[in-house]
Design a protein around this nucleic acid. Sequence first.
DNA 1: TAAATTGGATTACACTTGTAGGACGGTGGG
DNA 2: CCCACCGTCCTACAAGTGTAATCCAATTTA
Lengths: 126, 126
Amino acid sequence: MKKADCKISDAEWIVMKVLWEEAPLTSAKIVEAVGSNKNWSPKTIHSLISRLVKKGALGVNKETPLYEYYPLVDKRDCILDETRSFIHKVYDGSIHLMLANFIKEEKISEKEIEELERLLNKKNNK
Amino acid sequence: MKKADCKISDAEWIVMKVLWEEAPLTSAKIVEAVGSNKNWSPKTIHSLISRLVKKGALGVNKETPLYEYYPLVDKRDCILDETRSFIHKVYDGSIHLMLANFIKEEKISEKEIEELERLLNKKNNK
DNA sequence: TAAATTGGATTACACTTGTAGGACGGTGGG
DNA sequence: CCCACCGTCCTACAAGTGTAATCCAATTTA
């Protein structure tokens, strides 16, 4: 699981999330898992899988009769990357600005607020 | 200032941020403002400006000898859009998951933590 | 005033992305 | 045993992006 430069596009993320949830999977399984929330032709999903393999984000086990695919990049790393580039683009890199804006703009339930407060507290005491 | 579908690319965001900061500006001014943090040819910046005009994200005042450009889309709306699509891609739309992850992963100073707590509090009491 | 620079419009060009389709060979059902 | 369908690999193709260059007219500069 390398960090690598995982440049994963929007559509590809959907496939990756499936594999991060459960792996290895055959392409049929992936198609099935994705199918529920996206209306793509299986061909499209195959394309995405191939691209991800070529990019080095997915690995393939060719021993099995039907190839099995599994992630080669770490989900956490990809999330961090994606997050950083988002924050950089929109907030000029200011995490603080971003969090503040979020808390202000988005509707969060009271329970969630309490949990976030708890998290902040834990962080503060560390 | 319409909300419109502001599909602004990474590079274009840099230009928009300049104009949201101060407008209207001539292209020379924009080039100058961008120049400091990006190493683009002025030509590149002109291209971006034109695209933004074509997209309807920027307006032009052609009365002045040198055209003056200004935003037609609201910054806040664009941020919200961008944010939503980020959260949807990475966190399946869960704002809460996202905030929690942030607080966990990123290094935030103690002062910032306190301010965030203050914000959360205000939100909670509202 | 002639030359050099700049601004705006148009064009360029390779790469990525979304979204498949076609060819070919293996597998499963009748 | 033969055919239809699925998985793989390759190809396609238009739109969007990053990153300019060209052409022409206006403007600044020597």
